[in-house]
Design a protein around this nucleic acid. Structure first.
Lengths: 216, 216
DNA sequence: TGATTAATTAATTAAACGTTTAATTAATAG
DNA sequence: CTATTAATTAAACGTTTAATTAATTAATCA
């Protein structure tokens, strides 16, 4: 019944309570990001957090509640880390490529998680992830592309939305296909490779693959 | 123990047996492609197939066996559909973009499934999916890129592997992010849009985004 | 200090799961 | 016709799950 530790009187064992909450969230992140929802049991989460499994129901109202809390925490931290990455409405292709690649290289869990939520989940979490994810880079980048096309800097026949998709795909896909890279191409996606990839993508996006004297 | 109906004497109730097998495989595809492994129960599969749930153990040795059989069937049908798409070693960027886009547009389950297997699964199935997947397009395309770079048709400073990744990303990502497209950009990925996307990607890949008279 | 109440643990519950088993039906072979 | 074997069913098994309840601990305040 006690879905949440309601109206907790400030300063009464709250330190311990917060530590239990955070321990559970940390353990939840550790498991939920790596395995599917149903394949993770509350017991292993509680054990890893060093608390009793009933605490999940006490603090989060159940398994689903814990998962949603973890997702919210994750999205908030991402938002914060991205808010500092570029000036609003002023992102360039090179900046996007560089910042996004670094972000993905530093947080290997991120693309997996987003893709899983976007592709396989449903319900309120998926909506939240999509909207939050989409609001981070896409609008600014889309506006930037439209400006460049309108100003004649980019080719006038470029569809901004398709171009956005191409650019995001070039940037994100390698991190999604990371195991494929390692097993098939023998590449590892550390920060250095991610940097090379970002530079490569920027070049390719701006100039194309054809040699200067090339034909179609 | 009887993992498979061993040494089945030809012509003894095999018709019925095959229909049960296929009914189970069909139902398995219907559920496993949409939900995670642990979230699918043998009971719902058996119910949908109209057979007893013990048949799963009789014919496939268990839940895992049924899943693996389904995966193998899926990979074989994909391989067959792709073998007809291009001459070995002779694929161009435009061909790749076009064929792959059409394939993904026609089989919406495919990118989801591959990504799930590649990112979240482990064990023998993942190996099989990666190798099978990688052997379909990547080697031919990589060779083609190397040839174009070596011949001077493409810029000499292009890294073939990074270029392969960029190209695959441009092509595959929109289908992975399909829900995001629909919800954020208001686009639907039908065959027509997929065609436009393929043409756009080919153009962008070859010529880049910059206008002819543009600066860096 | 002693009552009160939040926090935590331990024990328990009911349901769902995949699998196994034993019994039954159907079909062929000798 | 009988023996044999494949195919199928229904029931039960043991395990695991999330959730609930009861019991215990500890901190606050009158």
């Amino acid at each position: 019944m006690a879905h949440k530790p309601q109206n907790r009187p400030a300063g009464r064992r709250t330190a311990a309570a917060e530590s239990v909450r955070e321990a559970l969230l940390g353990a939840a992140r550790q498991f939920f990001l790596r395995r599917e929802f149903k394949a993770v049991s509350l017991r292993e989460i509680a054990d890893a957090a060093g608390v009793n499994s009933a605490m999940v129901n006490y603090y989060f109202g159940g398994k689903q509640g814990l998962y949603e809390a973890m997702v919210d925490e994750l999205l908030s931290s991402l938002q914060a880390s991205l808010d500092a990455s570029h000036e609003r409405d002023q992102i360039t292709v090179a900046e996007f490529s560089t910042h996004y690649s670094r972000l993905l290289a530093d947080n290997p869990w991120w693309p997996n998680f987003v893709i899983r939520e976007v592709l396989f989940s449903d319900g309120p979490i998926r909506e939240r992830v999509i909207n939050r994810f989409a609001s981070v880079f896409a609008p600014d980048l889309l506006r930037s592309l439209q400006r460049e096309i309108g100003s004649g800097h980019y080719r006038a026949d470029l569809d901004p939305r398709l171009t956005l998709l191409s650019l995001m795909g070039m940037t994100v896909f390698p991190f999604l296909a990371r195991p494929l890279l390692e097993q098939v191409l023998g590449m590892t996606l550390d920060r250095e490779t991610a940097g090379k990839l970002a530079a490569h993508n920027t070049q390719l996006f701006l100039h194309g693959a054809l040699n200067s004297a090339g034909e179609t």
